[in-house]
Design a protein around this nucleic acid. Structure first.
Length: 466
RNA sequence: CGGGGUGUGGCCCAGUUGGUAGGGCACUUGGUUUGGGACCAAGACGCCGUGAGUUCGAGUCUCACCACUCCGACCA
């Protein structure tokens, strides 16, 4: 599509008024239009969390160093990228505090305090907040030093319950991505080397951007009782025996906005899925100075507000300017209404994704909008799915992977793996692609590992990632 | 953290051998326009990323720092 995908991406986040840069590296201002997308994502997801029994809480943003250090793998994973608070006013703190990179330790400390009996379980908590990770390379939405997210943290009586929760939330994410973001994802398990610091297993949904690079769109972790043992989270079961809880955590971030941009955007700008578009329909009056045009356009806007997120642009920019502007901003549907339409009691509906024009009588416009929004959603989903399918290649050897990359460019590579980390590293070194996930839906490509030729254990998706 | 590139009105960029800053777009006002980024006229907007240095004099030369950006390694 574009000569320079990376440049196209950074241009779009600025031109569509999603963000502005701030004077702190890697920290962005999320502008009203960008934040409105996040609010829609948040509202939709939050409803799904509530429907599955979760409650929202808020944890502090500071973690004492000693608390962060309680679980060994966890601190090793996160310590290199945390920001530290060393002073309160002019006083040096006795113990420095890190700004949360994630809140497992805080939830654990709290759960240790409030969980005593099997009757207290499960606890299904979630929080919406921001976290800080001192990244070296930063990019709007995809990798910023502070980012917004939600983190669910749950404690359960049994391992089975916790595993079930991990899978449930992975499915909630996948359904949300497919239904609301119109973005197909691959559900899978991360390899040992790629899993979350402190987890027993990490599951993820992986999406493919239309430049062929993979993006991790959400994760769900099963912790077993490792954190429970480190933090002393115990309960008395029915036999009055002390047991450790089993835990999960799961999260998605503002990176999803980056995923939307890179899944659906085109050379004219953003294309927003109707479910999360801040404006679903923009009304553009044509020849608005002529008698009756603005009145009719305003009347139509008010009427549509009952059912849709609608905006009218009655600024005195030219219609052509407005068309381009709202295409850049990815508004799914545009209504043009001018003297010619008013005469015929109709208006013009134009789809953002294919610019298809429909002349619609004003009488049944609501149902027509509903139909077109649905069609657009299906159509951009199918387009993204086709991209995913067309850019997924099965390979049996390292040479085949290199040949595919050379011939087809980036994409997902499906290949078998023996499960040995050495092979994972070697494939990365020889081809540049890393493991993305071991898909839940396994396929048989060959009998032997793509790298060492020993018997294969899994089929793995490989790729270059954002 | 390594390697490139960039930093000049809000945005995109000119700026010669060092001599005190310019264009287009956007903005304001008035008028004409309006079905794919309209036009005319008048106006307003600058510590040239920051800090040191060289010089009679620095946007321009030197050094340091900061930010953005692209390509790697690491990560949601």
């Amino acid at each position: 599509m574009e000569v320079d995908f990376a440049q196209w991406y950074t241009d779009i986040v600025k031109k569509a008024d999603l963000i502005d840069y701030s004077s702190v590296k890697g920290c962005m201002v999320i502008r009203p239009y960008g934040f409105a997308i996040w609010e829609n994502i948040k509202n939709d997801l939050d409803a799904r969390f509530k429907a599955t029994g979760h409650e929202n809480v808020y944890m502090p943003m500071f973690i004492p160093e000693s608390l962060l250090e309680k679980e060994k793998d966890h601190v090793e994973g996160f310590a290199p990228e945390v920001a530290w608070v060393t002073h309160g006013g002019s006083e040096e703190l006795q113990e420095r505090l890190c700004v949360r990179p994630t809140s497992e330790t805080l939830f654990c400390e709290h759960y240790a305090n409030i969980v005593h009996s099997y009757r207290d379980l499960p606890k299904l908590y979630n929080q919406w907040c921001s976290v800080v990770r001192w990244e070296k390379t930063t990019r709007p939405f995809l990798r910023s030093r502070e980012f917004l997210w939600q983190e669910g943290h749950t404690v359960h009586a049994t391992a089975e319950d916790a595993v079930e929760e991990t899978e449930r939330m992975l499915n909630v994410y996948a359904d949300f991505c497919e239904d609301d973001l119109c973005m197909p994802v691959i559900k899978g398990k991360k390899t040992e080397s790629d899993k979350f610091a402190g987890a027993v297993s990490t599951y993820a949904i992986e999406a493919l951007m239309h430049d062929g690079k993979a993006l991790q769109a959400g994760t769900s972790h099963y912790f077993g009782d490792g954190f429970a043992k480190a933090f002393g989270i115990q309960y008395s079961d029915k036999n009055n025996t002390l047991q450790y809880v089993h835990q999960t955590s799961w999260g998605v971030t503002t990176r999803l906005i980056g995923a939307i941009i890179m899944s659906h955007g085109d050379n004219n700008g953003l294309v927003l899925p109707p479910a999360v578009a801040p404006v679903q329909v923009v009304v553009i009056p044509v020849a608005q100075h002529k008698a009756g045009v603005l009145e009719k356009a305003n009347e139509l806007t008010e009427r549509l507000k009952e059912k849709f997120r609608v905006k009218i642009d009655d600024s005195d920019n030219s219609p052509g300017w407005k068309f381009s502007e709202y295409e850049m901003k990815g508004v799914p549907l545009r209504i043009e209404i001018g003297p010619k339409d008013i005469e015929k009691n109709q208006c013009v509906l134009v789809r953002r994704d294919n610019r298809e024009k429909t002349f619609v009588p004003l009488d049944n416009i609501e149902s027509e909008i509903e139909r077109l929004l649905k069609e657009l959603a299906t159509s951009i989903y199918n387009k993204a799915l086709k991209n995913l399918e067309n850019r997924t290649y099965a390979c049996k050897t390292v040479d085949e992977i290199n040949a595919s990359l050379a011939e087809n460019g980036d994409g997902f590579i499906k290949a078998m793996w023996c499960g040995d980390e050495a092979c994972e590293d070697k494939v990365k070194e020889l081809t540049g692609v890393g493991t993305r996930c071991i898909p839940l839906q396994q396929e048989h490509i060959s009998d032997t590992c793509v790298c060492c030729g020993k018997p294969a254990k899994h089929m793995v998706y490989w790729g270059k990632a954002y």
